[in-house]
Design a protein around this nucleic acid. Structure first.
Length: 928
DNA sequence: AGAAATTCCTAT
DNA sequence: TCAGATAGGAATTTCT
C-alpha cells in the first residue's frame, strides 16, 4: 500500500550557508574536486584533439577507437545461434519478406526487436508473420459455414468506413476463426463458448472493426446485432509479447537455420554496428524466462549528456535565437564502475581538461552535426541525462532545424527514421494535467533521470543539485545561469570552466542511475510484469496488470472484454480507528497485516472470473458451500469451483518474491544481489497494484465489486482485530493490564498492552499477532512490526514516536508520520522547529525544553533575528500573529515582509509562508 | 463571522 | 487515447 518511496525528512540544520560560500570561488582557483576525480579516470589516448573538429576523421577507428562498438564476429545463420538481450521493441508497416510467414500482399506489420549480445554488439531483429486480432462472441446458430460470409461482410464494411485509403489496403480482415473461449468477467459455470477470432491486416484497423461490430453489424441472414468486443484495446507490442511469451528485457534466442541475415543498406555502413540485422518468423524465436543464467544483463551502452546554451540576460533560452555552445557526453557500460567516454563538444576554443576529451568547433552547425554523428557512432542503448526529455532533446532538435542541420535529427537506430518532436499531454486524478514532449528514437531507451525521480521518489526539490546532494552528498559545479554567456564570450579558460560544469551535469545522472540502481530495477520490473522497458516510463500502472492478466488468462482460454470507461461514484475505502490522542510514556505495540489487500484477494478468491451475479446462483445450481458473500453483499465462487486469475497472479508474484528474497540471502556476488533486490521490490509493487487496477474507475477493466469487497473485508478485519486483542489481553485472563487499541489505520493497530518494557511489548506483541492471525484465512497474517516508546498521538494520520523493531535496547529512529517535519509544504524553519521540539519531548523527555525552544524561535522571529524578507502574509498569519504577540509586534513583523513571493522548495534558505507562530504554540500545548 | 469549499500533501 | 485507490488533517480562500 506504499506507492512511492518517501525521501522527505526535514532539511536539517543550517545546511548551506557555509558550504555555499566555498563554491563561489573564482574559476581561476585550484581545480575542483570533480576535476580531480576526472583526472583519476584511467589514462586515455583520447587526450585533447583540440583544434578544429573535422567530421570525417573524428569517427574513424584510429582517432576514436572507443566510440564504435566492438568488432562483431561474423555470423553464419546456418551454423550460429544468435542470442541477445532484447531491450526494446516496436513495429512498422513494411513489405513482406519472401519466405516469411503471413500476408504477402501489401503492407504488413513487422515487429522490430532491438537488443545487445553478450559481446556488446547490437541486434535489430525483424519479426514476421504476427498479425493483430480480437474476439467477439459468435452469434447463436453460427457455424463454420458462415465464416467466409462474415469475413467478407466485415472486410467490406471496414473498407467502406475508411475516409481515405492512402496505403491502398485491399484486404482488411485477414481471417475469421471459431475458437472456444470464455469471458473472464463473471463466473458462468466454466462453460466455454464459441468466439470469433478476427485477424486484421494492421493494428490500426482493429478500432474501426470493433466500432462497426459494436454499432450493429449484419451479415448473411443473421439479424443486425451489436457484438461485444474482447481484447480489441491491447497494444500490438503487448499482444505480440503475450502471445510469444516474451517479457520486457528477456533474452531471445534465434536458433541456427531459423533466421536470415539482412543485407546492409549501402552507405558504407558495413561496420560492426549492426552485425545482427536479421529476419525471423515470429514462431521461430525462442524466449528465455529470466531465471538462472538468463537473469544476466548484457553490456548495454548508456549515454548521458547535457547541453549549454548562450541565453540572453533574464530570458529563458530559445532555440530559434540562442545558440548551443557546449554538449558534454559520458558513456558507460552497464555494470562497469566508470564511463569510458568523456567528451565535451565546444563552440570556440577551450583549454584542456585532464581525463576528458575536448572537441572544439568554430561553427555551431558543425558542432551539432558532429554530435549527432557521435551518437550514431557510439550507438547507445540507453540515453539519459537530466530533463533531457523536456529540455535538451527538444532544444537540440529545434536548434538543428533553425540552423538547417539536416542530418541532425536521425538519432535512432533505424536508418532513415527521422527523430521528431511531439507535444503530448495527459491527465490523471493523481498527477493532474501534465504537458510533455517526446522525441522518437527507435531502438534506444530514453531514461530521463528527472522522470524516474518524479515517478519513484517523493522529494522536496527535484533540481539536479538538490537531488545530487540528497542521494550522493555531492553538488553541481557552481555556475550561475546568468554568467554562462559571459563565460562563453571570454577566453579558452572561461570556456573551460563552463565545460567542467557541463561535464559534471552529464556525469551526475550516471552516478545517480548507478546509486539508485535504476536500470536494474526497471529491467526487473519489465521482466516481472512483461511490458517493454519504455512503457515503464511512458505509461501508467495499469498496463503492467493488463500484461499479467492477459498472460494468465491465455492459459485458461479466457478473454478480456473491452468495457466502456465511465467515472462512477466514489466507493468506501479503509477504516481509520478513532485515535485516543495523547502522549504515551509506555511502550505501544504496532501490529500490521502484511500485504493486506493482496492477501484478502487470495484468501477469498476475489477475481473477475469468480464474481457471481445473484441470478446465476439458481441458474448454475450452486449450493451455499460453493460461494461466499462479501461484506458488501457481492458473491464470489470459492476456489474449489474455480480458482481466480487475480489470486493466481498474486500467488505467483508473492511466491516469486519469497524465492528472490531467499536467493538474495544466499547470494554473495554484489551485482547479482542488486538484481535480486530489484526483483523482490518489483514483485512487491506489482502485487500491491493489482487492487488499484480493479478500483481504477477510468481504467481498462474496473470491477468495483472486487475493490469494494476488498476494502470491506479490510474494515471488518481491523475491527475484529481490535476486538480480539482487547478481549483476550485482559487482567481477567491473567495479563498485567487490559489491552487497549489506541489507534489503527487500514491494516495496522497500535496497542497499549500495559507492559513496562520494550522487550515485553515485543514478546507479547508477537504472541498477539499469532493469536489474531489464527482467526483469519491464510495467507492473511497479522505480524508484529514495531514498538513505539514513547509515543505521541496527535490525530488521525499524525503521530510520532521512537521506533524499536529488533533491538529492545536502542531505538532505530524517531518516526514521524503526517507531521510538519515530513511535509513539503512548510518552510524549513517550521520543520526544524517542530523536529527539535519532538526530539525534546520524545528523546530528552523534556516537554518544557520544547516549549522553551519554540518560544525562543518565535522571539527570534519577532525580534528580527531571522530573515523573513520573503515571508508572505496570509490572513491567517495576520490574525494569529496578533493574538500571539499583540498588535504592535505584528505591525513590526509586517513591515519586514514583502507580499510577493511564496516559499519555494528550491530555495531552502528562504523562510517564508506558513510560518505560523500561533500554530506552533497551540500545537505544543496540545502535545505537552 | 462562521460555514463550506478548495488546495495541498500525506497515511495506508 | 490516456490516466492506480480512499481517508483525512490543516491552511487558506470563498461563500453566505
Amino acid at each position: 500500500m506504499d506507492f512511492k518511496r518517501r525521501n522527505g525528512g526535514p532539511a536539517m540544520g543550517g545546511t548551506s550557508q557555509a558550504k555555499k560560500g566555498k563554491m563561489n570561488t573564482e574559476w581561476e582557483d585550484s581545480p575542483s574536486q570533480f576535476e580531480e576525480e576526472l583526472a583519476l579516470f584511467d589514462e586515455m589516448e583520447m587526450e585533447a584533439e583540440s583544434g578544429e573538429g573535422q567530421a570525417g576523421d573524428l569517427f574513424s577507428a584510429d582517432l576514436n577507437p572507443r566510440w564504435k562498438r566492438p568488432h562483431a564476429p561474423p555470423l553464419q545463420p546456418n551454423s550460429d545461434t544468435l542470442i541477445f538481450q532484447q531491450i526494446d521493441l516496436d513495429y512498422y508497416l513494411g513489405s513482406a519478406v519472401a519466405g516469411m510467414p503471413g500476408q504477402v500482399q501489401g503492407k504488413v506489420p513487422i515487429v522490430r526487436m532491438f537488443g545487445v549480445t553478450d559481446s556488446g554488439n547490437s541486434v535489430c531483429c525483424h519479426i514476421h508473420g504476427f498479425a493483430p486480432y480480437f474476439y467477439v462472441p459468435a452469434p447463436n446458430g453460427f457455424t463454420s459455414a458462415h465464416l467466409a460470409e462474415f469475413q467478407r461482410e466485415l472486410n467490406s464494411a471496414v473498407l467502406k468506413d475508411m475516409r481515405s485509403n492512402k496505403d491502398n489496403i485491399a484486404v482488411t480482415v485477414l481471417a475469421v476463426d471459431i475458437t472456444r473461449k470464455e469471458s473472464m468477467y463473471n463466473y458462468h459455470g466454466n462453460k466455454p463458448h464459441d468466439f470469433l477470432r478476427i485477424t486484421m491486416a494492421m493494428p490500426r484497423l482493429i478500432a474501426p472493426a470493433k466500432r462497426l461490430l459494436e454499432q450493429g453489424f449484419k451479415f448473411a441472414n443473421f439479424a443486425t446485432q451489436s457484438y461485444q468486443a474482447y481484447e480489441a484495446n491491447i497494444d500490438f507490442e503487448i499482444r505480440f509479447m503475450v502471445d510469444s511469451d516474451v517479457v520486457g528485457c528477456c533474452w531471445i534466442e534465434l536458433p541456427k537455420g531459423k533466421y536470415r541475415l539482412r543485407e546492409e543498406r549501402s552507405e558504407g555502413q558495413t561496420d560492426s554496428k549492426y552485425p545482427g540485422k536479421v529476419d525471423v518468423a515470429w514462431n521461430d524465436l525462442v524466449s528465455h524466462p529470466a531465471e538462472g543464467e538468463w537473469q544476466r544483463i548484457a553490456p548495454l551502452r548508456v549515454l548521458s549528456f547535457d547541453i549549454e546554451c548562450a541565453g540572453r540576460k533574464g530570458v529563458f533560452p530559445e532555440p530559434e535565437i540562442d545558440p548551443v555552445i557546449q554538449i558534454a557526453s559520458m558513456v558507460q557500460r552497464q555494470g562497469e564502475k566508470e564511463p569510458f567516454i568523456r567528451t565535451v563538444f565546444t563552440l570556440q576554443s577551450c583549454a584542456s581538461i585532464v581525463g576528458s576529451q575536448i572537441l572544439c568547433f568554430t561553427q555551431e552547425k558543425q558542432l551539432l552535426q558532429s554530435w549527432a554523428e557521435f551518437v550514431r557512432t557510439v550507438d547507445p542503448d540507453i540515453i539519459t541525462g537530466y530533463n533531457i526529455q523536456n529540455f535538451d532533446l527538444p532544444y537540440l532538435l529545434n536548434r538543428a532545424a533553425t540552423l538547417k542541420v539536416n542530418l541532425f535529427p536521425y538519432l535512432g537506430r533505424v536508418w532513415g527514421s527521422k527523430s521528431v518532436l511531439k507535444d503530448s499531454s495527459f491527465q490523471s486524478k493523481q498527477m493532474g494535467r501534465r504537458e510533455n514532449k517526446t522525441v522518437n528514437m527507435e531502438g534506444r531507451v530514453q531514461f530521463d533521470l528527472l522522470q524516474v525521480l518524479l515517478r519513484d521518489y517523493k522529494l522536496r526539490s527535484y533540481t539536479l543539485n538538490a537531488v545530487s546532494f540528497h542521494f550522493l552528498q555531492e553538488q553541481k559545479e557552481d555556475v550561475q545561469h546568468s554568467i554562462i554567456t559571459d563565460l562563453q564570450n571570454g577566453n579558452e579558460q572561461t570556456r573551460r570552466r563552463l565545460a567542467v560544469y557541463c561535464l559534471k551535469d552529464a556525469y551526475l545522472p550516471l552516478r545517480l542511475l548507478q546509486k539508485l540502481m535504476c536500470v536494474i530495477n526497471y529491467m526487473e520490473m519489465a521482466r516481472v510484469t512483461g511490458v517493454p522497458l519504455t512503457y515503464l516510463l511512458s505509461r501508467g500502472q495499469q498496463i503492467k496488470v493488463v500484461s499479467q492478466l492477459l498472460r494468465q488468462a491465455m492459459k485458461q482460454d479466457l478473454v478480456m472484454p473491452v468495457v466502456r470507461t465511465e467515472g462512477g461514484e466514489d466507493y468506501t475505502g479503509a477504516t481509520v480507528i478513532e485515535p485516543e490522542k495523547g502522549y504515551y510514556s509506555v511502550p505501544i505495540t504496532t501490529l500490521d497485516f502484511s500485504s493486506l489487500y493482496p492477501s484478502i484477494m487470495m484468501a477469498h478468491n476475489l477475481c473477475y472470473t469468480t464474481l457471481l451475479q445473484k441470478n446465476q446462483v439458481e441458474k448454475l445450481c450452486l449450493s451455499p458451500e460453493d460461494f461466499i458473500k462479501t461484506p458488501t453483499g457481492d458473491l464470489f465462487v470459492k476456489s474449489s469451483v474455480r480458482k481466480g486469475l487475480l489470486p493466481e497472479i498474486l500467488e505467483n508474484l508473492l511466491s516469486a518474491r519469497k524465492r528472490a528474497k531467499a536467493e538474495l540471502k544466499k547470494e554473495t556476488d554484489p551485482f547479482k544481489k542488486q538484481v535480486l533486490d530489484g526483483r523482490q521490490l518489483a514483485l512487491k509493487i506489482s502485487a500491491n497494484s493489482v487492487y488499484g487496477f480493479t478500483g481504477a474507475q477510468v481504467g481498462k477493466l474496473p470491477c468495483l465489486e472486487i475493490s469494494q469487497s476488498v476494502t470491506g473485508f479490510g474494515r471488518q478485519m481491523i475491527e475484529q482485530t481490535k476486538q480480539l486483542v482487547e478481549s483476550t489481553y485482559t487482567i481477567a485472563n491473567g495479563y498485567q493490564a487490559d489491552a487497549k487499541v489506541i489507534y489503527g489505520d487500514t491494516d495496522s493497530v497500535m496497542v497499549k498492552l500495559g507492559v513496562a518494557t520494550v522487550q515485553e511489548a515485543m514478546n507479547l506483541g508477537k504472541q498477539a499477532a499469532d493469536w489474531v492471525s489464527s482467526h483469519f484465512i491464510p495467507p492473511i497474517k497479522l505480524e508484529f512490526e514495531k514498538v513505539y516508546y514513547p509515543y505521541l498521538l496527535i490525530n488521525k494520520k499524525r503521530y510520532a514516536g521512537l521506533y524499536f523493531s529488533s533491538n529492545a535496547e536502542h531505538h532505530d529512529k524517531m518516526d514521524c508520520k503526517g507531521i510538519e517535519t515530513v511535509r513539503r509544504d512548510n518552510c524549513p524553519l517550521v520543520a526544524n522547529l517542530i523536529n527539535t521540539c519532538l526530539q525534546n519531548i520524545l528523546i530528552d523527555r523534556d516537554p518544557d525544553g520544547a516549549v522553551a525552544h519554540a518560544k525562543e524561535v518565535i522571539s527570534d522571529l519577532l525580534c528580527n533575528r531571522i530573515d523573513i524578507s520573503q515571508l508572505v502574509i496570509t490572513k491567517e498569519l495576520t490574525r494569529t500573529a496578533q493574538e500571539y504577540a499583540g498588535k504592535q509586534a505584528h505591525v513590526e513583523l509586517a513591515e519586514r515582509c514583502t507580499h510577493s513571493t511564496t516559499w519555494s522548495s528550491s530555495c531552502p534558505n528562504l523562510y517564508c509562508a506558513s510560518l505560523n507562530p500561533y500554530w506552533a504554540r497551540a500545537k505544543l500545548r496540545v502535545c505537552c
